[in-house]
Simulated scan of single mutants.
Amino acid sequence: MWFTCEKELLENAINTVQRATSNKTTYQILEGILIKAIDNKVVLTATDLDLGIETYIKANVNKNGAIVVNSKLFGEFIRKLPNDIIMIEVKDNNVFIKCNKSEFVIVGNNPDEFPSLPSINENTMYEISQDLLRNMIRQTIFAIAQDETRPILTGILFEIKDGMLNFVALDGYRLALKSESIESSQNISAVIPGKTLSEISKILEPSDDIVKITFTPNHILFTFENTKIISRLLDGEFINYRQIVPDEYKLRVKVSKNELLDSIERASLLAREGKTNLIKFEISDDKMVITSNSQIGKVYEEIEIELEGEGIKIAFNSKYFVDVLRIIDSEEIYLEFSTSVSPCVVKKCDSNNYIYLVLPVRL
């Protein structure tokens, strides 16, 4: 194998596929990147057997071939090279890397031992813009479960139903639901691992370029620009989230999102000191009072609101409110309540495409 390419292109490709390499494995080949040079392009592939990423760059290929190199070492060396043309040549499993007056030799591994990515028939595709997919992930992924006791909750439900694409995440204490219309007459339901979507969101650009999405019973494929990302799906039945979201409320508060976020963040400073993250809401007439206290002090915050219905006293884990208020893209929001032990529903005032539900703390 022998090719030359631009350093910046190669570095970006390495950064993309490295997200799928495995650092905790007894199977050494999974710590590497498979590099294939063929027909004036270089294809880079990495996988941890659950997630696989493949991307390609343009190159001047003088001799076709393939090799597996250690991802960390190869990536760090390429990053430290000057921005110029890089030459890479393989001789007897030794990889020679040259750029200007720098030369580096690394021992490669047999490419035949590298596991193949699953083959996916790309006949049925769903299309969504990179920016929209990126935002749908961002506005739901924070609500997935972090522990493995219920593995299905460590992923996000990808649901297409009645012309709507829904992303749903929940961890037993809160639920985030983001919905957008999609051109599809088919219905589908699958649970994508949170790790997969987290890595995809770091690769996606805030652009209108299209991402093509394809499913098999066990895998999902995302294709955009020069990159393919393949992930296994989570096994099991996702919770019927439609039964969880209340259809009605007894009181509703309209409030400035930024004012509420600032107040809760100040109150949460003391709530964290108390080891409980507990903040209390007292809602009445045209104001909302937020308090927290610990052994070292108290916080009192008052915000102007518009109230429909009777007042209420209720308490929450401050983190669950801060998480959603930091990502919700609306200047004003609704908080809907039924009782002091029922979930609070957070919605945007200017759109019905986002719902967040959080359970209160019993006082």
Rank of each mutant, 00 (worst) to 15 (best):
K80Q: 12
G309K: 10
K101I: 05
G155T: 02
M87D: 12
L307A: 02
E265M: 08
Y354H: 07
T47M: 09
T140C: 14
L359K: 01
I67F: 00
I283L: 06
E273R: 04
K98D: 03
R266S: 06
N240G: 01
N258Q: 09
S185V: 11
I290S: 10
V324M: 06
F281D: 09
D39P: 15
D350V: 00
K212P: 12
L335T: 01
L44F: 10
L51T: 05
S102M: 13
T223D: 08
A267V: 06
G311Y: 11
Y56P: 01
N240E: 12
G155A: 03
K7S: 06
A37L: 03
K250S: 13
F104C: 01
K347H: 06
R362K: 13
I303A: 07
E148N: 05
Q243K: 14
L51Y: 12
N60F: 13
V361P: 00
V191A: 11
E148F: 13
T47V: 09
D39V: 10
G75C: 04
F96D: 03
A66W: 03
I333H: 07
D247F: 05
R362E: 05
E159Q: 11
N12T: 13
V17P: 07
K72V: 07
S342R: 06
S263L: 02
V322C: 06
I156G: 10
V253C: 01
D84F: 03
A271K: 09
P360S: 00
R138C: 13
D171P: 01
N258W: 11
K348A: 13
K254E: 07
R19H: 14
S116R: 12
E304G: 15
D208Y: 15
S189D: 07
I120M: 05
I85L: 08
K7R: 05
S179H: 09
R362Y: 12
V253T: 00
I296E: 03
S231D: 02
I14L: 08
K348G: 14
L9G: 12
K41I: 05
K178F: 02
V255D: 07
Y356N: 10
R134N: 13
C5K: 04
G75I: 02
I86P: 04
F167Y: 03
E302Y: 02
G309N: 04
V95I: 06
G65Q: 10
L153W: 13
I86C: 01
V168E: 02
F281Y: 05
T339E: 03
E113M: 10
V107K: 15
Q295A: 15
N15I: 13
K298L: 12
S342Y: 07
